[in-house]
Design a binder for these strands. Structure first.
Lengths: 331, 331
DNA sequence: GGCATTTTTTACATCGTTGGAACAACGTTG
DNA sequence: CAACGTTGTTCCAACGATGTAAAAAATGCC
């Protein structure tokens, strides 16, 4: 692979002159510029970005830390972040934590390897104190909620309001025994959605029944199915269920069908995330639809600002969402 | 951010000694090792991978070029490649081509920027001559089939045999009018699956009817729905359909349901890819299940071998697959 | 203790690039 | 024609890490 030195030798000028041409600096004589450009073509020169970045102190990389690409929400989000980053000439390095606390800690710690200009992190299991692992001085933008309150930039939707909207919709259908699937001891997002669920029930004058709140330690389809099975086994099973993500809802729908429960007649179901999967299922899934493109763009933009001006006060960006009403609630 | 120099100053030894400790070389006195390790902890040193790789002549990066992370198959595969790459201390850079020929050409051309040690490419629309854009000397492993026959490493399943299995299964159920969804003028994978479909029909003594082969220019859910609608509008609609991927099948299932066609009674459906989505739908989807982990591992491994020994003859690795029989064919 | 041998440490050059200083060539001006 | 500013070029150092070779220290042996 050709280096600046090779090009310079071929063009009969100094290395720096070639560098000047490559970087579009002025003050290069037309004659020399022509010869350098010729030599560039002849050698097929490509800058070694590693060396360039070493010299410039900027890497041109951004890390995207998320639980798992196998989860549609994160896969879709990752695709959008990739596109948003491209506009800022950033390459994206994706790191999977597999949703474990240890994985997240380790990944956070590895961010300090000078390889990246900053990181967008979607935490799931992080807890108090884990942020100490984060090398100081690395610009980070957090996605969604987390339980720890640190001075770090954040992007996300108003989860409480979104959950309230979802549950209010179920209330408006006349449902009385509205369950929730997805409570979690350590997830900030879960806590907020639970809060919205409770507040909507209270506002509607419905009782808060603990047996209608199902915990899910993971948010995969099978966890939704398991939780649904438990709810349906109650002496007074629910007539509606609000799932904290679409995968849980898909699992719940499947289990309801297996148990002969009709959706939406016997049971109305609402999800969260608006995965494309939900709109093609039978019944199609009513769901809270965060504007994922807005999240991706806001995160990349916020990160760019922080990289350029590290001393800005931390910011909290709220992105919009809508409620997509489909067949699973009779829409 | 601390550098080797800082650590060396703190420990009172030379930079190289610190480097030796970091890299686990022998011949470091216990006393010095202890002091260096102390200093490493105190400074929170992290190696600058850019600099290290510059020196080593290796970038530590691998590009994964694929159509779109929003497609479950590629998202799942990407997750597995990430994991496989980790074992070889490779960071993965994901590039989306959005499935367009121009996107793929452009990405291939940009691989030459010295940024990566090699690339794993899942081509979709590449055609004859497009490989010229690929900078020479860059190790590349191709996933799946492509129409061009070049001396390049490849990993994939036997698509002809897999399609034959799928269609043979439909034949064994007694279906007579077996349709296919997913024919495509320029996709190697589509050509192979079509070949398998035809050969299985011929072997079973069933006629090849062109009106039962639906083209899909994209492989998204909506394309499957569109194609299914066309097939169901035929004077003699099919009693089974083999979809070239699961997304097409999901769309087809949805459309069948909307038209009041019962699956599997009136119509048996088989997909391809074994997305988790398919196993939770109603009915759950019978599908060809490639061993994705094996594909990811084989690709990374093949790439490693090629990086280390560029002169090896190109290799073709076939990974295993199974047929998962579920409700959509009465399983 | 003197010498050879082994172990441990260090200085230096290097990877490919770019910023800055220094320098050269040039035309312009007083 | 000397002094000057402008334009264009080269040289050198540096980014942070590591391989090499040489220097230094420790060890063994007679």
């Amino acid at each position: 692979m050709a280096t600046l030195k090779d090009v310079a030798a071929l063009a009969g000028v100094s290395v720096k002159t070639v560098s000047n041409v490559v970087n579009g600096h002025e003050f290069v004589k037309a004659e020399n510029r022509r010869r350098v450009e010729e030599a560039l073509l002849a050698t097929g020169y490509r800058p070694n970005l590693g060396a360039r970045n070493l010299r410039r102190g900027r890497t041109g990389f951004l890390a995207l830390v998320l639980p798992e690409l196998g989860i549609p929400y994160f896969a879709e989000l990752a695709g959008l972040v990739l596109q948003a980053a491209q506009a800022h000439e950033w390459n994206v390095l994706i790191e999977q934590t597999l949703g474990t606390r240890e994985g997240e800690r380790a990944t956070l710690a590895s961010l300090g390897t000078h390889l990246i200009d900053g990181a967008i992190v979607s935490p799931e299991a992080l807890q108090e104190g884990d942020f100490a692992a984060l090398a100081p001085g690395i610009p980070v933008v957090m996605l969604g909620e987390h339980t720890v309150d640190l001075p770090i930039d954040r992007v996300g939707i108003d989860n409480v309001a979104a959950a309230e909207d979802a549950v209010r919709h179920l209330v408006s259908l006349g449902r009385k025994r509205i369950a929730a699937i997805g409570a979690h001891p350590h997830r900030g997002t879960a806590a907020q959605r639970l809060e919205g669920y409770r507040s909507a029930l209270t506002t509607a004058g419905l009782p808060l029944r603990d047996d209608l709140v199902a915990t899910a330690l993971n948010y995969h389809r099978r966890d939704g199915a398991t939780a649904m099975a438990e709810l349906l086994a109650l002496p007074e099973p629910p007539d509606a269920v609000f799932c904290f993500n679409d995968l849980l809802a898909v699992g719940a729908l499947r289990m309801a069908a297996e148990r002969g429960v009709r959706v939406p007649e016997d049971l109305a179901v609402v999800g969260f995330d608006n995965n494309e999967e939900g709109s093609y299922g039978r019944p199609s899934l009513t769901t809270v639809a965060p504007d994922k493109a807005a999240i991706a763009e806001a995160a990349v933009d916020l990160l760019r600002r922080r990289v350029e001006t590290p001393d800005l006060p931390p910011e909290r960006v709220q992105t919009p969402f809508t409620l997509e009403i489909r067949e699973s609630t009779g829409g």
